[in-house]
Amino acid sequence: MSILVALDRLHLQAKQNEWLRYFAIFNRIALAIGFFAGGMVKIVGERFASGLSVKHPMGSYLEALHHTGYYYTFIGVLQVAAAILLLIPRTVLLGALIYFPIILNIFVLSFAVRFDGSLFTSPLMVISNLFLLCWHYDRLKYVLPFKHPAIDAAAAKPERISNKFPVLFFAGVVATVIFFLFIAANLYDIKPYNSFVDCKKQFIGTNRTTAGDAFCDCIHNNGQQLDSCLDKYNKAPNDKPLR
């Protein structure tokens, strides 16, 4: 049996599970809500995350994006369109295909600037999007550069809905959520956070309070690049011990 036929059989088995069908619907709704809200903000012309200072790395990016005119609106239209398409059963795959490059960009951006607001949610949204693409593998496979069997033996079988709860699958889902929660909290020792006060809190109780204050000042008051501020922080000495 070829790998492609095995994938067809595995996909068909998953599609016949009632719990996985509910999970697919949950993913569609959750992703749609995430993009609809953010997209509408762009369409009406408001700046996304308006409470974030323009001197913050993410705030600076969002401010510049807000000043790109109809490009900013265009992104919002795509986000809302992707959200609506995800909610319509016949257009889910198209919505997922539009959604993926946008959320992948947000994911990379979040980690590049260490944005605390989406370090946890953006990777989960990418994985959720990938799940939907895999869920519709039976349609997506025809645009992939692989030669498929002329007769799909797996799809020829009659559909039987199973109510068996996929324990291992959902255990993997929970483990994935916990893993990225841990990653978001522990991946970076130093983060700019969303405000000057929150930034300074991460250095309380350490021997790097002076260097930390300078780092936060570099980000939130001087608006310098993250890499530059990190370089200055790493080169700064530890606090002098009290005598």
Rank of each mutant, 00 (worst) to 15 (best):
R160D: 09
T176M: 03
H136A: 06
V173R: 04
P101R: 05
N194Y: 04
F115D: 12
L140P: 07
F180A: 09
F131A: 11
Y137M: 01
K191C: 00
V197L: 04
R114G: 00
D138T: 09
G117R: 04
E159A: 10
S128L: 07
L119V: 09
I190V: 14
N163K: 11
N163M: 15
V108E: 00
I183T: 01
T121G: 08
K201Q: 05
I161H: 06
V143I: 11
K141E: 12
S128M: 02
V167A: 15
L140R: 03
W135I: 09
F165E: 08
T121K: 03
F131I: 04
S195Q: 14
V174L: 14
F131Q: 10
A153D: 13
F120N: 09
Q202C: 05
A175K: 15
R114C: 00
S118W: 05
L144Q: 14
F180Q: 03
D152I: 01
A184H: 03
F100I: 10
A154G: 10
K191Q: 01
Y99N: 07
K164S: 08
P101M: 00
I161L: 11
N186C: 06
P192Q: 11
T176S: 00
I161T: 08
F182G: 00
M125F: 14
F111Y: 14
K157H: 06
L124D: 12
A154L: 00
Y193K: 10
S162C: 08
F179P: 05
F182V: 03
K201W: 07
N105P: 01
A184E: 01
E159K: 10
N129Q: 12
Y99R: 05
G117T: 00
I103V: 15
K201F: 04
L181P: 02
A154M: 04
H136L: 10
I151D: 06
F111S: 00
L187H: 08
V108S: 01
D152G: 02
P123D: 01
F131M: 13
P166N: 13
A156C: 02
L124V: 03
Y142P: 03
L104G: 07
A184Q: 00
V113S: 08
P166C: 15
T121I: 15
D198T: 09
S195C: 12
F107A: 01
